[in-house]
Design a protein around this nucleic acid. Structure first.
Length: 956
RNA sequence: GCCCCCGUAGCCCAACCGGCAGAGGCAGGGCCCUUAAAAGGCUCAGAGUGUGGGUUCGAGUCCCACCGGGGGUACCA
């Protein structure tokens, strides 16, 4: 679009071609001069004298998975944002740590390898190189020495090392922190801590000792129900399973199966992960999502006596958050898989005349239960949830006793009670619980309200606040009547504890983290097995490198073959799997763990590696960690990266996992910060127009034309009208726009300015290619303020700026600074535009006192063109570390202020008074204004309100 | 169903602690430059803030209800 032959264009204009030239030149120079390298206090990047007396700033993006498609225009939004802030902070004199790594283990590379037979490392490295090139093209000021790849053995050596810290640790509930298992063993040996069965430690056999310890490790093997997908041959994480209970990839059925898997004991940290959310500066919605995910709820465990079929007295333990409603418990429900079900189910129905739906027509309770289990048996939890909310269940034939009033209440099994939550059994209180109400209605069970609903309440279950009713037992003297929910809870818990019927309890939704995957392209576990269980590979033998295998795919099966067994790809590397090691008692045969870690592992600690990227001795030198991430100030600062920017899609998983690992490292004394990320900001998404034809099929967005018909825009593809919608950028919507296209058409600086000017970083916004020209015009105009387009000569004068321009300059400086600090890049750019517009309108050459700060104000967003102009202004050194302009307060205060004067809500006059005029003087001037007097027409003002510096309002 | 976020000009967005609804950009109209067009320059117009109430001297901003859009979550006891 530029400089075609025969076109008369200003020869020294800032064109895309010139932008490209400038961008190459400065990227080269930045690289040579290593301007973005951040010094460390210790280790290989140490420059102690370079950090002395300087504040630090650690800013980080959520690092990308290097997909084969490279980046589209949506990806760099956050990256440009952090780069702008990093550049601004650098100019403010901070020692800024900003780099970019790659989260490179993962399924797409493996699938590609399965299809092509090419090793995933090759595609991964090629993709990383492509994205690195794109990042450099966009002018990112990253310290490239600190970039990490999670697939690099030098990196995953430490991922494995940290895993071993989890393996070698247990959670000491007394001290509320993780401690080494060697401490645990020492306490068992000395007798300070009793063994589970009370025998002295010395009397336990070696396998028994191992079992005791293994059962308490933060990383442990357990048989747990997992999402097994025979069609893919691997287990899947919950987030990889659709709401229809099928695999997101391939749409194969997913089954719940118990398999021996590695688990991480994140539940031990549930309280701290919840409580410490108050210490960090994160968006409230994210904190809410994490709190919900952890799902801490306070309540009570209550035991309801029940007799088994053999006449033995047992108890059904339930968890309830509403122990205050115990008097309203009119029946009980056990999860169908609950172990007590079979024990309590009697041989015959206790009564002859039971409602049909209680027995489901079965001759005996056992038959009814069996039939019910079969009816739901084949279904996974996921399927059960998908199906209608209609309550189903069956009577077990057993009755339990409500401990508060001795009432005999029937016990049901029903699948709306889940084995995995609480105790897998509930007391059903239909009066105060909607689910229980629905079940009670269907099974004609009694309903007792124990909280008085407000007058006029015509709903079913009442879950709101109100005084307790129907909650007195004259025989025991227990009464909750009249108490509010909280007081009633307190009293009943005290009573339950006193009587031995139960106790106050805390329950969590959070489950331990399933940490094994049957995949090739992931971190191998640094674990071998002998006949008794898992053993850690010694630290000096790390990393356990990923071996080559003949085939990268896991073994797949008939998609419906629920009973098939996963076969991890690594298990085919038999030479690797069977290994002879000397772990202290001579060379022995061991079998390696063949699962790999999930792709969240590498991202759990990468911020720490950025701080000390090539340390061979430790994952991060404590001095470097303390410098970059240590707690700041003296309050309750938990430490962590100063600013972390990324998408909201990682609200729970990555951010929760990373917090968990960080806390383990903190407990073990490896880091000084309690949290990895002090401040978190979620950038919005960029959406792009996508078009569907008459069949609803997406057509290539790049080939759609916009025409105007009858004043309405119409979109045409190959002459046919198509519908426009906005959606996520990607192949499926055929609306990919790449930063490469934009850099070619406009230049990187224009692209950066456009993305930053679209709106606040946190907002989602639609991409509009034709609007990019606005950003280009801004840069062209700034260029023109400094360079004569016709001659290429400088347009700078050393004459001082006039007062209007000078005041505008200082206002712009002050505004731009606060905008950058508040991540409001759009308004910062608007202020630069405004200043430059004023400059354009001012006749004559550009005063240096305006041009220089103007270029510096723009530098964080448009670094290349700013460098070029800075050089043309006569500076030899890069402006990357040039001081950011400071506003002179003298020019910020206006000498006079114009007040609008309102009479009865309408502006009737304007007065100009000295800026420091007293309120009385302003009032007098307002009342003296002619327009105001006319509006008042002799009426006496009831009230005159003077808002200092703003306006005057007269009430009549 | 429940929870959270967002609704300002044709479009993207500003508006500080409640104080004259407009900073900036796109698109649109007019003019200049040009043989012409593109690019460029100058300039103009354009909402009363999703709807309905309330608080206030004063509401885009605070409160309540509703409508529309987006996200999270879903038998969690």
């Amino acid at each position: 679009m530029s400089e075609q032959p025969g076109v008369t264009e200003a020869p020294f204009r800032y064109t895309p071609a010139r932008a490209a030239e400038i961008e190459t030149k400065w990227q080269e120079r930045w690289r040579k001069e290593r301007v973005y390298e951040a010094p460390n206090p210790a280790g290989s990047l140490a420059e102690p004298e370079a950090i002395r007396g300087r504040p630090k700033f650690f800013v980080q993006d959520m690092f990308p998975y290097p997909s084969g498609d490279g980046m589209h225009v949506g990806h760099p939004l956050g990256y440009v944002g952090t780069d702008v802030l990093a550049r601004y902070m650098r100019m403010r004199g901070y020692n800024v740590l900003h780099t970019m790594g790659f989260d490179a283990f993962g399924l797409p590379a493996e699938q590609y390898a399965v299809q092509t037979g090419q090793h995933p490392r090759i595609t991964t490295e090629r993709n990383i190189a492509a994205i690195r090139r794109q990042l450099a093209m966009l002018g990112m000021g990253h310290d490239t020495r600190r970039s990490v790849e999670t697939t690099d053995p030098k990196y995953y050596k430490w991922t494995q090392w940290i895993f071993l810290r989890l393996f070698h640790s247990f959670y000491d509930a007394e001290q509320d922190r993780a401690r080494p298992v060697t401490d645990l063993v020492a306490e068992y040996e000395s007798g300070v801590r009793a063994t589970p069965d009370g025998r002295p430690w010395a009397e336990l056999t070696e396998p028994e000792r191992r079992a005791v310890v293994d059962g308490q490790r933060l990383a442990y093997v357990s048989d747990v129900p997992v999402n097994w997908c025979p069609g893919l041959g691997t287990v899947l994480s919950n987030e990889e399973v659709t709401s229809e209970g099928r695999s997101e990839r391939g749409n194969f059925p997913v089954f719940r199966r118990s398999l021996g898997q590695w688990m991480l004991r994140i539940t031990a940290y549930a309280d701290r992960l919840t409580d410490d959310l108050d210490l960090i500066d994160w968006p409230e919605p994210i904190r809410v999502m994490q709190r919900n995910w952890i799902g801490r709820s306070h309540g009570a465990n209550v035991t309801f006596p029940v007799d088994t079929a053999d006449g033995e007295r047992r108890g059904i333990e339930v968890f309830t958050t509403r122990p205050d409603t115990l008097f309203g418990a009119t029946f009980m429900v056990l999860a169908p898989e609950h172990p007590l079900v079979d024990e309590i189910t009697p041989a015959a129905w206790p009564e002859d005349e039971l409602p049909g739906q209680w027995t489901n027509g079965a001759a005996t309770p056992a038959e009814a239960v069996r039939g019910y289990r079969a009816s739901i048996g084949g279904k996974s939890d996921i399927e059960r949830q998908v199906e209608s909310r209609e309550k189903t269940g069956v009577f077990t034939g057993a009755y339990a006793v409500n401990p508060v009033n001795g009432a005999r209440i029937p016990v049901f099994v029903a699948d709306y009670v889940l084995l995995g939550y609480g105790t897998g059994a509930i007391m059903a209180v239909p009066g105060q619980d909607e689910r229980d109400w629905a079940f009670a209605e269907q099974y004609r069970l009694p309903i007792v309200r124990t909280v008085q609903p407000p007058a006029g309440f015509d709903g079913k279950a009442y879950v709101g606040e109100g005084p307790a009713v129907n909650s007195t037992n004259p025989e025991t003297g227990l009464s909750l009547d009249g108490l509010g929910i909280e007081d009633a809870k307190e009293r009943i818990i005290a009573w339950l504890e006193e009587q031995g019927h139960g106790s106050g309890t805390v329950t969590y939704k959070l489950r331990d983290w399933l940490f094994s995957r049957q995949r090739y392209w992931g971190e191998p576990f640094p674990i071998v097995f002998d006949e008794h269980g898992p053993i850690a590979v010694p630290g000096d033998q790390l990393p356990v490198e990923l071996p080559d295998v003949p085939e990268y795919a896991p073994k797949t099966y008939d998609p419906d073959d629920a009973d098939s067994e996963p076969v991890a790809p690594l298990s085919r590397a038999t030479d690797w799997v069977n290994v002879t090691l000397d772990l202290g008692d001579g060379p022995k045969q061991y079998r390696r763990e063949t699962n790999t870690m999930p792709n969240w592992a590498g991202s759990c600690w990468y911020e720490l590696r950025y701080a000390d990227p090539d340390n061979d001795e430790i994952f991060c030198d404590p001095a470097n960690e303390a410098y970059w991430m240590g707690p700041q100030g003296d309050g309750d600062h938990a430490g962590g990266v100063d600013l972390y920017i990324g998408g909201v899609e990682h609200a729970v998983l990555h951010l929760l996992y990373a917090r968990f690992w960080h806390k383990v490292l903190y407990d073990l004394g490896h880091v000084s910060s309690r949290e990895p990320f002090h401040r978190l900001v979620n950038q919005g998404y960029i959406q792009a127009p996508a078009y569907t034809d008459a069949r609803g099929v997406y057509v290539p967005a790049a080939e759609v034309e916009e025409v105007t018909r009858d004043g309405e825009p119409v979109f045409l593809y190959q002459g046919q009208p198509v519908n426009r919608e906005f959606g996520k950028i990607g192949k499926s919507l055929k609306n990919v726009i790449t930063p490469d296209d934009m850099c070619e058409q406009y230049g990187a600086d224009t692209f950066r300015v456009y993305e930053m000017s679209m709106g606040p970083l946190v907002a989602s916004k639609p991409w509009e290619t034709r609007a990019v020209v606005g950003a280009q015009r801004l840069l062209q105009r700034v260029w023109r303020s400094v360079v004569d387009e016709q001659t290429g000569e400088s347009r700078i004068t050393d004459e001082p700026a006039g007062p209007e321009l000078r005041n505008a300059l200082h206002r712009a400086i002050a505004g731009v600074r606060t905008d950058y600090e508040g991540l409001r890049f759009n308004t910062a750019i608007a202020k630069v535009t405004e200043l430059n517009n004023l400059l354009t309108q001012t006749p004559g050459d550009t005063p240096r006192e305006v041009a220089e700060p103007l270029v510096l104000l723009l530098a964080p967003v448009a670094p290349h063109v700013a460098e070029e102009l800075w050089e043309r202004l006569g500076h030899d050194e890069s402006l990357v570390h040039a001081p950011f302009p400071e506003a002179d307060p003298r020019y910020l205060v206006a000498e006079t202020v114009v007040y609008p004067v309102q009479v009865a809500k309408k502006v009737r006059g304007r007065i100009e008074v000295p800026a420091d005029a007293a309120e009385d003087a302003v009032r007098e001037a307002a009342l003296a204004d002619e327009g105001v007097r006319r509006a008042l027409a002799g009426r006496e003002p009831r009230k005159v309100i003077v808002v200092p510096g703003r306006m005057v309002s007269i009430v009549v």
